[in-house]
Computed example of a mutant assay.
Amino acid sequence: MLTLQSLIKKKHKMVIDLKHYNGFIFDMDGVIADNHHYHIDAWREFCKRHGLSFEVGAFTSKYFGKNNTDILQALLGKSLSDIEIDLLGEEKEAIYRELYQPYIKPLDGLIDFMRELRIQGGKIAIASSAPQSNINFVVEKTCIKEYIDVSVNGNMVKFGKPNPDIFLKAAELLHIQPQKCLVFEDSFSGIQAAINAGMQVVAVATTHKKEEHDPALTIISDFRELL
């Protein structure tokens, strides 16, 4: 059973004391749900429809964790209007939701972990580069709505990850100082964004394997390790 006396362990050493934090900020894709492959499949189909080349390794290393504005403009090699970004982004996200809906589930241990955080008085935010339509989809299908205090999507900040804006916005809405927030992230750009925000971060090894992450980080495979 988790209490705020609990410590996240890494290599048998005590690393992060959960009782130090009042706010817990979760990225969504790859953290709340392990949906990396479904986003890859959706982007592959999107690129096919638009006659764009697609290579999984290059795409993952360059774009995962970034918002649709940055990804679409890079893929298409030109600036896009807000309307174009909205239309193209929603096209891709509709493909993703159709592919993922039959299989969506929360990452192992997530619901129990969130429940214990709330029991102990912690506040919980989602901070995701995804559009709000995807956040609503995942929150509903994983049955975590009752645990979420605030959510921040990519359209609510000017600059996407690795800029810290999205995590700072989440802390602001939680009314908690950044240094009192703990972030859970899977992408390299998201981890850097949390560090840039002055927050401690736990790496979730879904999109990237444990050995791919900076060994100085606290790294977990799923939330069962925190219970």
Results as ranks from 00 to 15, higher is better:
Leu4Tyr: 13
Gln5Phe: 09
Leu7Phe: 13
His12Ile: 01
Leu18Pro: 03
His20Lys: 15
Asn22Gln: 15
Gly23Glu: 10
Phe24Ala: 07
Asp27Lys: 12
Asp29Phe: 09
Asp34Met: 10
His36Gly: 13
Tyr38His: 15
Ala42Lys: 12
Ala42Arg: 03
Glu45Asp: 01
Glu45Ala: 07
Arg49Pro: 03
His50Cys: 05
Leu52Trp: 06
Gly57Asn: 14
Gly57Ala: 12
Phe59Arg: 06
Phe59Ala: 14
Thr60Pro: 00
Ser61Pro: 00
Gly65Glu: 10
Asn68Lys: 11
Ile71Cys: 13
Leu75Ser: 11
Leu75Glu: 13
Lys78Tyr: 03
Lys78Gly: 03
Leu80Asp: 07
Glu84Gln: 15
Ile85Leu: 02
Leu88Thr: 01
Glu90Val: 02
Lys92Phe: 01
Ala94Arg: 10
Ile95Glu: 11
Tyr96Met: 00
Tyr96Cys: 00
Glu98His: 03
Leu99Thr: 04
Tyr103His: 15
Tyr103Lys: 10
Pro106Gln: 10
Pro106Thr: 03
Leu107Ala: 06
Leu107Pro: 08
Gly109Arg: 11
Gly109Tyr: 13
Leu110Tyr: 08
Asp112Met: 11
Phe113Asp: 05
Met114Leu: 15
Glu116Leu: 09
Arg118Trp: 01
Gly121Asp: 00
Lys123Asp: 12
Ala125Tyr: 06
Ile126Pro: 00
Ala127Asn: 01
Gln132Tyr: 01
Ser133His: 05
Phe137Val: 06
Phe137Ala: 12
Glu140Arg: 12
Glu140Asn: 05
Glu146Leu: 03
Val152Asn: 14
Val152Gln: 06
Lys158Gly: 11
Phe159His: 13
Gly160Arg: 03
Asn163Phe: 14
Asp165Tyr: 08
Glu172Cys: 03
Leu173Met: 15
His175Thr: 11
Gln177Tyr: 10
Ala194Asp: 14
Gly198Tyr: 12
Gln200Val: 08
Gln200Asp: 14
Ala203Phe: 12
Val204Trp: 04
Ala205His: 05
Ala205Gln: 06
Thr207Asp: 08
Thr207Pro: 05
Lys210Asp: 08
Glu212Ile: 03
Asp214Leu: 09
Ala216Trp: 00
Thr218Val: 14
Ile219Asn: 04
Asp222Trp: 08
Phe223Lys: 05
Phe223Gln: 10
Arg224Ser: 14
Arg224Gly: 10
Leu226Phe: 07
Leu227His: 04
